[in-house]
Design a protein around this nucleic acid. Structure first.
Length: 444
RNA sequence: GGUCGAGUGGCUGAGCGGCCCAAAGCGACAGCCUGCAAAGCUGUAAAACCACGGGUUCAAAUCCCGUCUCGACCUCCA
């Protein structure tokens, strides 16, 4: 095992060894299902999908990839109220959209625990924190806060000192500006359905505790990799780490954070109004192109969106797909060494892509030995040969037109031949005249 | 104020002490192939003096110091 991974917590590259030989547990912070997904979510999903693939294919590990769904939170309640619907209904709707988008880009995940399924686990952790003196209940309310002053390790993930941090205004029973809510008393006007019983009174979980609870439920007291977007480092991951350690768990062995997506150098965000919706991305190119683009920069780098980015990616991924389409009969073979080295160096996908492109060019130049390797590499990156099945009617029609065109060409009636090509194009069919005759395919 | 990144060709983007007169992709131009295309191959250019100025080293895009510019986070965020 020569895999090295950059660990955000130690701020350096470390050799990766699974906690349990042969197995890897990865927990990636998934969406809070409050509103539609944006490309940032896709980037994170694709990054960790590729990472999991490589752990499986390149290292033969049994990977359990968990991506949670936070389905209770302030914004879900607020947005549902605004839309005049039950918050649970909104959460289910939004989650369905997320799942659809993840699937369409080939980054679906099997294990998707929900925050609301783990309320009891969260209550248990909070009780443990109170018992250990790391949390306190506010006087006269159900609010429970984590006591940052009681935990010397607070700030270790992001290497910040408490006194340097800006904090929230003290109120609602919070003792210090940096203390964060573990359990929240319901606010006036919030639905009864969004409250659960607890030793401190009716309420709901604070933002970070759900992830701790779900990692414990899925993996136990420790697991290999905790992932998520760079913007989650603080406060979310810092707080997760603090409350988990303070409750007696060793928690994540590695912390991995993917870089953010920017537009013209600025972070894509709703408040800036520069967001490009997922639909807009899919309008610009195939899911494969969007996925390729998301992988075209190293996962830790900022990925800047420019207007022709998807079109460029489409052209690049088409080369690979075209090649694979011509070699469908070749089964996936051995992964080239250079590709493995790139992936082992903290998942250097851009460098791995270069190896893949080199192999495709070699294949196109007549080296028939590379096709199996191309298939294997493409599988790791999640690039499939795009083959669109034609209906029998369409196929028959195309075959008939091609036969006619063949005759026309034999008779040097090229204007007729070009007309047929244009007609096929109208049908969404692209043809290629090769040495072995004319091939055709359905356009994506 | 604190913490952390980034600045490499027309664009995207690897490389992070010697294999770099810097990968790969996109775009441009030319040639080959083709009836013409498409796909593909080959080649070429744009001064890539690797933000700038110092330093360390036999050797620096890569390490150190300083400067400039840009970005992220500091309790909403993938």
């Amino acid at each position: 095992m020569a895999l090295s991974i950059y660990d955000s917590k130690s701020a350096g590259i470390r050799a990766f060894e699974p906690l349990t030989p042969g197995k890897v547990g990865i927990y990636v912070c998934g969406p809070t299902v409050q509103s539609a997904p944006h490309v940032g979510h896709l980037r994170s999903a694709v990054a960790f999908d590729i990472i999991a693939n490589w752990l499986r294919v390149g290292h033969g590990l049994d990977v359990k990839l968990v991506r949670n769904v936070t389905d209770i939170d302030d914004k879900i309640l607020a947005n549902a109220k605004e839309q005049g619907k039950d918050w649970r209904e909104l959460a289910v709707e939004v989650e369905a959209i997320f799942n659809g988008v993840y699937e369409s880009i080939g980054a679906g995940v099997l294990t998707r625990p929900h925050a609301t399924e783990h309320i009891a686990d969260m209550v248990a952790i909070i009780e443990e924190l109170i018992n250990r003196g790391h949390a306190y209940q506010a006087e006269g309310s159900a609010n429970v806060f984590f006591d940052t002053a009681s935990w010397a390790g607070y700030g270790e993930l992001t290497r910040q000192k408490l006194e340097n941090m800006e904090g929230e205004a003290i109120g609602g029973g919070r003792r210090a500006a940096h203390d964060f809510a573990l359990w929240k008393a319901p606010k006036p006007g919030e639905p009864e359905s969004a409250s659960w019983d607890s030793p401190w009174g009716k309420g709901r979980p604070g933002w970070h505790i759900e992830c701790s609870a779900m990692t414990f439920a899925e993996f136990g007291e420790s697991f290999d990799i905790h992932g998520g977007g760079l913007d989650l480092r603080f406060p979310h991951h810092e707080n997760e780490l603090a409350q988990s350690r303070a409750a007696g768990y060793s928690f994540a062995n590695f912390w991995m954070h993917n870089g953010l997506v920017t537009v013209s150098g600025q972070k894509m965000s709703k408040s800036l109004g520069n967001g490009v919706s997922v639909d807009e991305f899919f309008d610009q190119g195939s899911p494969a192109a969007v996925r390729y683009w998301l992988g075209s920069a190293h996962y830790r780098s900022t990925l800047d969106y420019s207007p022709n980015a998807i079109a460029d990616a489409e052209a690049a991924v088409s080369r690979i797909q075209n090649f694979m389409g011509r070699n469908l009969d070749v089964p996936a073979g051995e992964i080239p060494k250079a590709f493995a080295e790139a992936m082992d160096a903290d998942f250097n996908v851009p460098a791995a892509l270069a190896v893949l492109h080199d192999a495709v060019r070699a294949g196109n130049s007549g080296d028939s030995s590379v096709a199996g390797g191309v298939a294997a590499m493409a599988a790791v990156l999640g690039i499939e040969a795009e083959v669109f099945e034609a209906s029998p009617e369409l196929a028959a029609k195309v075959e008939a037109l091609l036969e006619e065109r063949k005759m026309a060409r034999a008779n040097k009636d090229f204007s007729r031949s070009d007309m047929i090509r244009e007609e096929l194009n109208q049908l969404g069919v692209t043809i290629e005249d090769t040495a072995n005759g004319t091939t055709w395919s359905i356009n994506g």
